[in-house]
Simulated scan of single mutants.
Amino acid sequence: LNLRKPPGSITIIGGGAVGVEYAFVFSALGSEVHLVEKSENVLAGMDDDVRLGVKRSLIKHGVKLHLNDQVNSITKNSDGVVVETLKTRIESEIALVAIGRKPATDKLGVENAGIKTDNKGFIIVNEYLETSNPHYFAVGDVIGHPMLAHKAIYQSLVAAENMAGKKIAFRKLIPFIVYSIPFAGGVGAVPSKDDVATGRVRIARFGYHGLAMAHIEDGVDGFLKIVYNDKHEVIGAHAIGPETDMIIAALTIAIEKKLTLEEIGEVIYPHPSMSEALRESVLIGLEKPIHTVVFRK
Rank of each mutant, 00 (worst) to 15 (best):
S92E: 06
F122C: 12
D69N: 00
I247Y: 03
E287A: 14
I124V: 15
E37R: 04
F26G: 07
T75L: 09
G185E: 03
G265E: 03
G53P: 05
D79R: 14
L283C: 05
T131W: 06
E130L: 06
V201C: 09
K5E: 13
A197V: 04
V267N: 11
G265C: 05
S156D: 10
Q70I: 07
G15S: 00
G140A: 01
L3F: 14
V196Y: 04
R171T: 13
E233N: 13
A160G: 08
L67C: 02
Y179R: 13
A204E: 10
E266Y: 11
K257E: 15
M163S: 10
L261N: 04
Y228H: 15
V36Q: 02
E37S: 12
R101K: 12
S78H: 14
D195V: 08
S73W: 03
T260E: 05
F223N: 02
V196P: 03
A184P: 02
T131L: 07
I59F: 00
I181E: 14
F170P: 02
A164E: 12
I74V: 15
A138Q: 05
I12T: 11
L211H: 04
D221W: 04
D230W: 06
L3T: 11
E243W: 13
S281M: 07
S132E: 02
S39C: 06
D79C: 06
F183K: 11
I59Y: 00
E161M: 09
A204D: 11
G16S: 02
G114L: 05
V178W: 12
Y228W: 06
T88S: 15
M163C: 10
V36E: 01
P270I: 04
G8Q: 12
G30E: 09
L1S: 15
N162G: 05
D47N: 09
G30Y: 07
V293Q: 15
N68C: 09
N126F: 01
D218R: 14
G140Q: 01
G14W: 03
V220A: 14
S27R: 00
G15R: 00
G222P: 01
H61P: 04
V97N: 02
M163E: 07
T131S: 13
V18S: 05
M163W: 06
I248G: 14
L173G: 09
V190T: 10
A204Y: 02
R202I: 12
I115G: 10
A44G: 14
L224G: 09
A149M: 09
A239D: 04
A249G: 11
L67D: 00
A237N: 10
D49M: 09
I253A: 11
D195N: 07
L1A: 13
L283T: 03
I240Q: 01
K231S: 12
H150L: 08
I248N: 11
S39K: 08
I153V: 14
I99G: 07
I247F: 01
P242C: 04
H238E: 11
V158H: 03
F170Q: 07
N72P: 05
E233V: 08
A164W: 02
G45N: 10
Y179S: 12
L224Y: 12
D194G: 07
G15E: 01
